[in-house]
């Protein structure tokens, strides 16, 4: 990694660690959601950026993580770790079973298949109220307790979720930088050539789909502990779209872009609520403007800006 990149990374990490204690609680709360959504969005970003797959089913795994945590901690009364673990195993298995046949599809057929997965799962979450508590939802999910420290304020949760996000980013960076990452990009950019070199495209895609599902599940479990409540309304198709927007907006091939995308999708709507009923329209227009003006995402836009300023400076 270049020295410049390391310096930027250190500065960003220092800001992320030092500034939140001085921010209002409601802003820290938004940062918590940014971290949680970044983790879920990271999974979608890996699929989109590295495999070229538009996944509209991430809300399913997000829900599985949340419900697994709710069921294990509230109904069975076992420790939080069991909730995380159950969610991850369940999500991984379902991703394997569904991903293997579905990931044979390509392009918009694949996107539609993942959308169908989200719709079907949401209907089941409503129907299976013996398991999900349907419209009433699961309440009383305990706050996380790590070595005696109860994570019961947005600030504490921010540091926890931030740490989990950092680990997920690190794992993803390692993956992208590895031989597997190279195969993924080869498969995305030149599928026939990759196949001729012995890359098993379907199994590779399935593995990333499983990883994406695991990230979604971890995010869902964190969400359940943070809000202490899960309800089917939190896992609708609009959530799946939000998770897809995050990497699209930030820059699908960029890991920091996912974080920027998540910050954008949590902070900007909040800022726009000051405009009352118009805020959703304004957010839509902002999204459109961003995508049109920065087709390679916010990270791509920032990179272009940096290049422009450097060139101007030289001139």
């Amino acid at each position: 990694m270049a020295t410049r990149s390391i310096v930027i990374l250190v500065i960003i990490a220092a800001i992320a660690l030092a500034v939140p204690p001085f921010l209002p609680r409601s802003v820290v709360d938004l940062l918590v959601f940014s971290c949680i959504y970044s983790i879920a969005g990271l999974g979608v970003g890996l699929l989109l950026g590295q495999c070229g797959i538009a996944n509209l089913g991430q809300s399913v795994f997000y829900a599985l993580g949340a419900y697994a945590t709710a069921y294990m901690t509230v109904t069975l009364g076992v420790g939080a770790a069991w909730g995380f673990l159950t969610g991850v195993i369940l999500s991984g298995l379902i991703a394997l079973v569904i991903g293997w046949p579905v990931l044979r599809l390509t392009g918009h057929f694949l996107a539609l298949a993942t959308l169908a997965l989200g719709i079907v799962a949401n209907a089941l979450f409503y129907e299976w109220d013996w398991l999900t508590h349907g419209s009433l939802g699961f309440g009383g999910i305990p706050k996380l307790n790590i070595f005696g420290l109860v994570i019961d304020t947005p600030l504490r949760f921010y540091y926890l979720a931030g740490a989990v996000l950092a680990l997920c980013l690190l794992a993803s960076a390692n993956l992208i930088g590895s031989r597997t990452g190279l195969m993924l990009r080869a498969m995305r950019d030149a599928p026939e050539a990759a196949k001729s070199l012995g890359v098993n495209a379907q199994w590779l895609r399935t593995r990333i789909f499983i990883l994406s599902a695991i990230f979604g599940s971890i995010a869902g479990s964190l969400f359940a502990h943070y809000g202490s409540f899960v309800n089917v309304q939190s896992f609708g198709i609009e959530k799946a779209i939000a998770f897809l927007i995050i990497p699209v907006l930030g820059g699908a091939t960029s890991l920091p872009g996912v974080v920027i995308g998540a910050l954008f999708t949590t902070l900007v709507p909040e800022m726009l609520t000051r405009f009352g009923d118009l805020h959703q329209v304004l957010f839509g227009l902002t999204l459109m403007a961003t995508v049109v003006l920065m087709p390679s995402g916010l990270m791509g836009g920032l990179a272009s800006l940096s290049r422009y300023m450097t060139a101007r400076g030289r001139a």
Binding site: S135, L136, G139, G227, S228, F229, N231
Partner: peptide
């Protein structure tokens, strides 16, 4: 809404 009320109640 119930979901929102329970979330805020937290």
């Amino acid at each position: 809404q119930t979901a929102n009320t329970v979330a805020v109640g937290g």
